[in-house]
């Protein structure tokens, strides 16, 4: 079974553990993730602030290439890439003139036939069906599922989950034995756009997210976006500075959590790459 795969820059670089865990999960299911040939940057976080045409042309090229390669399902693990690709498909499908113009820019025909899957979609469609019998070690932890902004908004375009109080990650987590906590920062901004330029703002915004997760006694934060992950994980030093305490709460990708439940090797899931060591409480380790 082959599925189209658009890694994007983050997943191919700074957040390669996300890609590794996706691939590991796919492998466990006998799915081959086939990268879009000659893919390019989706333009996320910068292009759409500067140039509308460019912001549409970049994702349009990726989608055209995927269509050309015959991909019907395209997994886009990064929430930012997913958002850009979905918005582009939405914009181009409702405006024929725009579609023609962009096709001229990219030099490729755009049909809009690709079904773009975010990681939760992908899990729901391909992983969940056989999940219960594959679980080797239930992921018996209290988790705070963090959706961020880009996975569920704008709802008009994405039509995924409830924008104010999303539930899809929580449902997945329940299935692998985890207990999702009811908390207030599911969709608050982590400060992704300022990740490099203004770390103090990131420390403030992400700090509040981490603080609430700790207050609700979560053992781990579950994320589905490399931006969120890098802010909550890589910027933990700044966050700790802001919170004036050392928080050891690990930040885990949803794919990694499922991987652990399936008994996939920690290294294969890229857990060793995290800045905040993924040390889950002992009590659960003992329930093997």
């Amino acid at each position: 079974m082959k599925i189209g795969f658009y890694p994007g820059c983050s997943v191919d670089g700074g957040s390669r553990e996300y890609k590794e865990s996706c691939r590991a999960l796919a492998k466990a299911y006998g799915i081959e993730l086939e990268s879009v040939p000659d893919w390019n940057c989706c333009g996320a976080s910068a292009a759409h602030n500067l140039n509308r045409e460019l912001a549409l042309a970049l994702p349009a090229r990726i989608l055209s290439l995927a269509e050309k390669a015959g991909m019907t399902d395209l997994l886009v693990p990064c929430a930012a890439c997913y958002n850009r690709l979905m918005l582009t498909q939405h914009e181009l499908m409702k405006d024929e003139t725009l579609r023609k113009n962009i096709s001229e820019v990219t030099g490729l025909e755009f049909k809009g036939t690709c079904s773009i899957l975010n990681v939760v979609h992908w899990i729901q469609k391909w992983i969940l069906p056989e999940l219960p019998e594959k679980i080797k070690k239930p992921f018996d932890y209290k988790v705070a599922c963090y959706y961020g902004c880009l996975l569920v908004r704008p709802h008009k375009v994405l039509k995924f989950d409830r924008p104010e109080d999303p539930q899809s990650l929580d449902e997945v987590m329940k299935l692998i034995g985890a207990t999702p906590v009811d908390w207030a920062f599911k969709t608050e901004c982590c400060g992704a756009g300022l990740s490099v330029s203004k770390t103090d703002v990131v420390a403030d915004l992400s700090g509040k997210i981490v603080r609430d997760a700790v207050y609700r006694q979560a053992d781990a934060l579950i994320v589905a976006c490399p931006m969120c992950h890098s802010n909550l994980d890589m910027r933990r030093r700044e966050i700790n500075g802001y919170l004036k305490q050392n928080v050891s709460l690990p930040v885990i990708y949803v794919t990694q959590a499922i991987g652990l439940a399936l008994g996939i090797d920690r290294k294969e899931l890229g857990l060793h790459r995290h800045f905040v060591p993924v040390n889950l409480p002992e009590k659960a380790e003992a329930t093997k």
């Binding site: 908390w183 207030a184 920062f185 608050e188 609430d212 207050y215």
Partner: peptide, 11 residues
């Protein structure tokens, strides 16, 4: 934008 409960208070 949001109301949440924390330590017996509504933030």
């Amino acid at each position: 934008s949001r109301i949440y409960e924390k330590e017996g208070k509504l933030v």
